[in-house]
C-alpha cells in the first residue's frame, strides 16, 4: 500500500509538472498581454505593469519564477537570498492579472470552501437519493415503483444539470417559493444548487444500486438467508446492500470529478462565488494565471480523489490488487 501511494505521488508530480509546463508556455505564446482589453493605458503605465508582473522577462525566466526552483522575486536572478524557493514549489500560484492586489492563492482560499461545501452537499444528495431509489426499485422488480424509478433515472441521466437547474428554479423559487433565487450566505442558499448539481449523479447511483442489488440477490448466500427465514427487509438492507454498494463506491471517484465539473455551471447559474465561477470568469477575461492556478488545483484534486477511491475499493474488496 505504501508503495502504491508512493507511485501515485510520483505520477501526480509528473502529471502536474507536465500540465503546468505545457500550459505556461501556451500562455506565453498567446498574442497580446493580459492587459490588452483594459482601457488603453499610457505606454509608461503599461511598462510599469509589465515590469510588476515580470512580463518583460524572457519566457524561461518567467517559467522558473512561476515554478519557483529559484526565487527570482523582485530583484532578479538570485536577488532575494532569504528565500531560495518560491512559486509553485511552495504552493504559491502567483498574482491574478484581473483582480489587482489579489494573489491566486487568496482567491482560491476564499472560494474553495464554498465549492467544497456545495460539492459535498451534492454528493450526499446523490448517494442518499440514489441508493434509496435503487433499493426501492430492486425491492420488487417489474412493479410500478420499479418502472417509475427506472423512467425517472433515464430522464435524470439524460437531462443536463443546467437544464434541470432552470426548471428547478421555476418550480421551487417562483411557483412554490421554498428557496432564494440565487446568491450565497445562508443554509437556504445551499439546497437548490446542490439538488440541481447532484441529481444526474443520483440517477446514475440509483441505476448502479439496482443492478448491483439484483445481482447480489441472486447469490446463494441470499437464498440461505431466505431459507433461514430472515425477513425480506433484513435480507435486502443488511445482506444485499453490502455487496451492491461496491460499484457505487467505485463510482464516487468519477462522480466527484463530474460534480466538480458541473459546479462550473451551477455556480454561474446561482451566482455562487465559488472556485468554479472564478475559473470560468478568468477564462472569459483572459486572466491566465488564475485559470492556470485553478486548473492545477483541480488536477491535483481529481488525482487525489481517484487514488482515494482506489484505496477504498481495495479495502472493501480484498481480492483487488492495487496497481498503477
Amino acid at each position: 500500500m505504501i508503495a502504491f501511494l508512493g507511485r501515485r505521488l510520483l505520477w501526480l508530480l509528473v502529471t502536474t509538472w507536465i500540465v503546468v509546463t505545457v500550459s505556461f508556455f501556451m500562455m506565453r505564446a498567446v498574442p497580446g498581454g493580459p492587459f490588452d482589453q483594459d482601457r488603453s493605458v499610457p505606454a509608461g503605465v503599461a511598462r510599469n505593469l509589465e515590469a510588476q508582473y515580470h512580463l518583460d522577462w524572457p519566457a524561461w525566466r518567467q517559467y522558473l519564477q512561476y515554478l519557483g526552483p529559484l526565487n527570482l522575486d523582485r530583484h532578479g536572478l538570485l536577488g532575494d537570498r532569504s528565500r531560495v524557493f518560491g512559486g509553485l514549489l511552495t504552493g504559491d500560484l502567483g498574482p491574478s492579472f484581473r483582480y489587482r492586489d489579489y494573489g491566486v492563492n487568496e482567491i482560491i482560499a476564499e472560494s474553495l470552501p464554498i465549492s467544497i461545501l456545495l460539492g459535498l452537499a451534492a454528493l450526499v444528495w446523490a448517494v442518499t437519493l440514489g441508493t434509496t431509489a435503487g433499493a426501492l426499485s430492486a425491492w420488487r422488480p417489474g412493479r410500478a415503483l420499479d418502472v417509475g424509478v427506472r423512467l425517472l433515472v433515464s430522464v435524470g441521466i439524460a437531462l443536463p444539470n443546467f437544464a434541470l437547474a432552470g426548471i428547478l428554479i421555476l418550480v421551487f423559487v417562483f411557483a412554490v417559493p421554498l428557496a432564494p433565487v440565487a446568491g450565497w450566505g445562508t443554509l437556504a442558499h445551499v439546497w437548490l444548487p446542490a439538488v440541481a448539481l447532484g441529481s444526474p449523479f443520483a440517477a446514475y447511483v440509483a441505476r448502479l444500486t439496482r443492478t448491483g442489488l439484483l445481482e447480489v440477490l441472486g447469490q446463494e448466500y441470499i437464498q440461505t438467508a431466505r431459507a433461514k427465514g430472515l425477513p425480506a427487509r433484513t435480507i435486502l438492507l443488511r445482506h444485499g446492500m453490502r455487496g451492491a454498494l461496491l460499484p457505487v463506491v467505485s463510482y464516487l471517484g468519477p462522480a466527484s470529478a463530474g460534480i466538480l465539473t458541473g459546479s462550473l455551471v451551477i455556480e454561474r447559474i446561482f451566482a455562487i462565488p465559488g472556485t468554479g465561477s472564478h475559473f470560468v470568469n478568468s477564462a472569459l477575461n483572459r486572466d491566465y494565471t488564475l485559470a492556470l492556478g485553478v486548473a492545477v488545483l483541480y488536477t491535483v484534486l481529481v488525482f487525489c480523489l481517484n487514488t482515494l477511491v482506489d484505496l477504498t475499493y481495495a479495502v472493501l474488496d480484498p481480492r483487488i490488487e492495487l496497481e498503477g
Partner: peptide, 13 residues
C-alpha cells in the same frame, strides 16, 4: 487522470 474539461476551458480561453 487529467480534469479535461478544465484544461479545455483553459485552452479555449
Amino acid at each position: 487522470s487529467l480534469p479535461f474539461v478544465f484544461l479545455v476551458i483553459f485552452v479555449l480561453a
